[in-house]
Amino acid sequence: MVTRTAPTPEDERARFVERFGSSLTAAGFPRLPARVFACLLARDSGTLTAAELGEALAVSPAAVSGAVRYLETTRMIHREREPGSRRDVFVVADDAWHDVMINSSATYGPITATLREGVGLVGGRRTPAGHRLALSVEFLEFITEEMKGIATRWEERRARLG
């Protein structure tokens, strides 16, 4: 007979990290950055060093380095210097989703500029390709404008949440 012990809080946290990481991966995120993001979200402090991330996720320091670089690029986390130390800690903001979504202009700006330039390069708006690129520009500009209103409404709602 196998005796099972009740899962510890750390076991439950690890289970959540893997489950949420899998959800993000299914949505298109690279696997390890998804797990790193989930791991940081699930910590009360919202911070871990590269060594702590490696240990928590059973991955190499090199793998952690690539994952955090991806997450910093997407603005999902940021790096801080641990007070009184030379070690970096990786930090997820309490409102990380807000930061990622609201900074869409930083993401979409260069894409929109390139698409806008491409309209002329493929023969202008009257060509099927030019029309498609122009429509993409209009959509991304629309999304960027809408995000400003969403940000305002979220800040009002968050204030009500306390």
Rank of each mutant, 00 (worst) to 15 (best):
I77T: 15
R81C: 06
R75L: 15
I77P: 01
T74N: 14
E80Y: 05
R75S: 13
V92N: 04
L53P: 03
F90I: 05
E82A: 05
I77Y: 11
E82W: 01
P61A: 12
H78D: 02
R75N: 03
G66C: 12
A56T: 01
M76R: 15
E72V: 05
V59W: 04
T73L: 11
T74R: 15
G54A: 06
T73H: 11
A63I: 05
G66N: 14
G84S: 03
R81F: 09
S85L: 01
M76P: 00
E52W: 10
G84P: 05
I77Q: 11
R79W: 01
E52S: 08
G54Q: 01
R79Y: 02
V91W: 03
V89C: 11
V89K: 12
V59I: 06
H78L: 10
G84Q: 05
H78V: 15
E55P: 00
L57G: 09
V64K: 00
P61T: 12
E80D: 00
E55D: 04
V89M: 08
G66W: 15
S85Q: 06
L57W: 15
E72G: 04
A58N: 12
A63W: 01
R75K: 11
M76H: 10
A93D: 11
E52Y: 07
A93V: 09
V59E: 08
R75W: 15
L53M: 08
S85H: 05
R79S: 13
V68G: 00
L57Y: 12
V64G: 02
S65M: 05
V89S: 08
S60P: 00
V68K: 04
S65T: 15
T74L: 13
E82P: 03
G84M: 13
L71T: 06
A63M: 10
H78C: 11
E80P: 03
F90C: 01
T74D: 07
G84C: 06
V59G: 04
V59C: 09
R86V: 02
Y70R: 00
D88F: 11
E55I: 00
T73Q: 14
T74F: 06
T73N: 12
S85E: 04
T73K: 14
P83S: 02
G66L: 13
L53C: 06
R87S: 08
V89G: 03
A63E: 03
D88N: 09
A56F: 03
S60Q: 13
V89E: 14
V92H: 00
S65Q: 14
A58W: 15
A93P: 07
V92T: 08
L71H: 07
R86S: 04
G84V: 03
L57V: 02
Y70F: 14
A63C: 01
A62H: 03
